[in-house]
């Protein structure tokens, strides 16, 4: 029976497609990695192995800027993703477990608004708005703008997940004299987790990669990784950007490996 149980999940070709998908995603990264070791300044003509770009990234004259940009990007991305995920979870609960109410359609539209509006429009309008209310441009303006546009990306997976969860569990908990907060925290939330995590990841990568809006609302002296990279590209693409990207890749792989082992030990518990 266990055999049949596992078999029922298998579809021929799905594994192949997954591998293919991963291949497409990772192939350009291999190019990035390879050319980060290029001797010359080219990203297309290979001229020998060299670590000089990594050295440049760590101690070169522009290294401080890139380091700071990376730090900014990550701190903003994590903060914005956390905030957006919390707000989105809360909103999803309200939308899907709050019964029917008049403003429901409008709420849905509002939540998805950042998705629909072209980034350049949001960028220019937000800058004008911030200037008008005297919100001085800097780290905070970027953070706030990011939280706002990350919300729909976090909301979608969470809502989709929640729609697949029957409310019987929460009702049962309430019947057993749990408070609403307890019902949420101990019943709904754990069931929601894969959706919440998915939402967090989406918000994180959207924030990490944002260029247009960040470019317009950032203040003097603040760079994020995308603005630094885009700017550097205008002066001619060099392998130092490839080196930075490869290192980022390394960091993320380390984090994944760590989380895998943590997850495994968790399971054993």
């Amino acid at each position: 029976m266990a055999q049949a149980g596992e078999d029922i999940k298998k579809y021929p070709g799905f594994m192949g497609i997954t591998i293919f998908c991963l291949l497409i995603l990772y192939a350009p990264l291999i190019v990035v990695m390879v050319y980060s070791f290029n001797e010359s300044k080219s990203i297309t003509e290979w001229q020998g192995l060299s670590l000089k770009w990594y050295v440049d990234v760590f101690v070169g004259p522009e290294s401080a800027k890139f380091k700071e940009a990376a730090l900014n990007s990550f701190s903003i991305a994590i903060t914005a993703a956390i905030a957006a995920t919390i707000i989105a979870t809360s909103a999803a609960t309200g939308m899907l477990r709050g019964g029917a109410f008049k403003g429901r359609g409008l709420s849905f539209a509002l939540i998805n608004l950042p998705l629909i509006v072209p980034e350049i429009v949001t960028a220019v309008a937000t800058l004008i708005f911030f200037s008008a209310i005297g919100f001085e441009r800097g780290y905070l303006t970027i953070l706030v703008a990011h939280i706002a546009f990350c919300i729909p990306f976090a909301y979608m997976p969470i809502a989709a997940r929640m729609q697949g969860i029957e409310d019987t569990y929460e009702q049962a908990a309430l019947d057993l004299y749990a408070t609403k907060a307890q019902a949420f925290k101990r019943v709904l939330l754990p069931l929601l987790m894969p959706g919440v995590i998915s939402g967090f990841i989406l918000a994180f990568i959207i924030s990490l990669d944002d260029f247009i809006i960040t470019n317009f609302v950032k203040g003097a002296g603040i760079e994020t990784l995308p603005t630094a990279i885009f700017g550097a590209v205008k002066q001619g693409i060099k392998p130092n950007i490839m080196a930075i990207s490869t290192m980022l890749l390394g960091v993320s792989i380390v984090m994944v490996t760590v989380s895998y082992f943590v997850g495994k030990s968790d399971q054993k518990k």
Partner: peptide
């Protein structure tokens, strides 16, 4: 599963408020 229920009906406004505020203001 059900698409929508009203388990948390009373807290609805509070639950939606953060998103309304953030999105209302900044988008």
């Amino acid at each position: 599963g059900s698409a929508q229920t009203d388990t948390f009906k009373e807290s609805r406004t509070w639950l939606l408020m953060p998103s309304w505020l953030v999105l209302g203001f900044f988008i």
